[in-house]
Amino acid sequence: MSYASSSQGLSARRTSAQVAALVFGIIFLVIGVLGFIPGITANYSALYFSGYDSEAVLLGVFQVSVLHNVVHLLLGFLGLWMARTHSSAKTYLIGAGVLYLLLFLYGLIIPLNGAWNFVPFNWADNWLHLGLGAVMIILGFVLGSDNTRRTSGSRGSPGEGQIPN
């Protein structure tokens, strides 16, 4: 059986890390787009480019700005692009997870109603960043060690389905 080259794009069979990177990429794209839709984003008329004074809140909970939404869109596109190979998907999951943990720490340190809160964050964002960071890093390590391609319903024998070098 021949495998499609994953270096040329998404192959027909993806590793679990690639699927996870795709899923997070799609989620971040959807979140980024929803942040620009009035009704889904409350106080949309107070959606500013950046800064804590942006009063727009996604789903009535998460404080957003144009910059915040653009960051989600960029992370989404990056996830789709890096899902092309197993190693880049693993790098995406761990790297974006570390980024979210750093954003969580940043959100704890800065005053949420001050100039340093330029993205902006609120407490709901901070807790979400902690959860996303932890989940993405764990998935990156757990799924990143599984370098096998699986077909649905097929478990195969040990060593079967290894990605060719």
Rank of each mutant, 00 (worst) to 15 (best):
Val30Met: 11
Thr41His: 08
Gly60Asp: 04
Val23Ile: 11
Phe77Cys: 03
Val71Gln: 03
Ile27His: 02
Val70Phe: 08
Phe77Gln: 02
Arg14Gly: 01
Gly32Thr: 10
Leu59Glu: 09
Ile40Phe: 08
Ala96Arg: 11
Asn69Cys: 07
Arg13Thr: 15
Ala21Asn: 04
Ser16Thr: 15
His72Lys: 02
Gly25Arg: 00
Val23Ala: 05
Gly32Gln: 07
Gly39Val: 10
Phe49Pro: 12
Gly97Thr: 01
Leu59Ser: 09
Trp81Val: 02
Leu80Gly: 05
Tyr48Lys: 15
Asn113Gly: 13
Val64Met: 08
Ala17Leu: 11
Val70Asp: 07
Ser88Ala: 12
Ser87Glu: 14
Phe62Leu: 10
Val57Gln: 15
Val66Asp: 10
Val98Lys: 00
Ile27Cys: 02
Ile37Thr: 11
Lys90Pro: 01
Ser16Cys: 10
His86Asn: 04
Ile94Cys: 05
Val23Tyr: 04
Leu74Glu: 08
Thr41Ile: 09
Leu67Lys: 06
Phe104Met: 09
Ser88Asp: 09
Leu22Thr: 07
Lys90Asn: 02
Asn113Glu: 13
Val30Pro: 03
Tyr100Phe: 12
Gly76Lys: 00
Met82Leu: 07
Leu75Ala: 07
Phe36Asn: 07
Ile37Val: 14
Ala42Cys: 07
Ser16Val: 11
Leu112Cys: 06
Val19Leu: 09
Ile31Glu: 04
Val30Arg: 06
Ser16Glu: 14
Ile27Asn: 00
Ile109Phe: 09
His72Phe: 07
Val70Gly: 04
Gly25Cys: 01
His72Ile: 02
Ala46Asp: 15
Asn69Ser: 08
Leu74Phe: 10
Ala42Met: 15
Ala83Cys: 00
Leu80Cys: 09
Phe77Tyr: 06
Gly39Ser: 08
Gly107Lys: 07
Tyr44His: 14
Ala96Asn: 08
Phe77Lys: 00
Arg84Glu: 11
Leu108Cys: 13
Ala20Lys: 00
Val98Tyr: 02
Met82Ser: 06
Leu101Ala: 04
Ser45Trp: 09
Gly35Ala: 09
Leu103Tyr: 08
His72Pro: 03
Tyr48Thr: 15
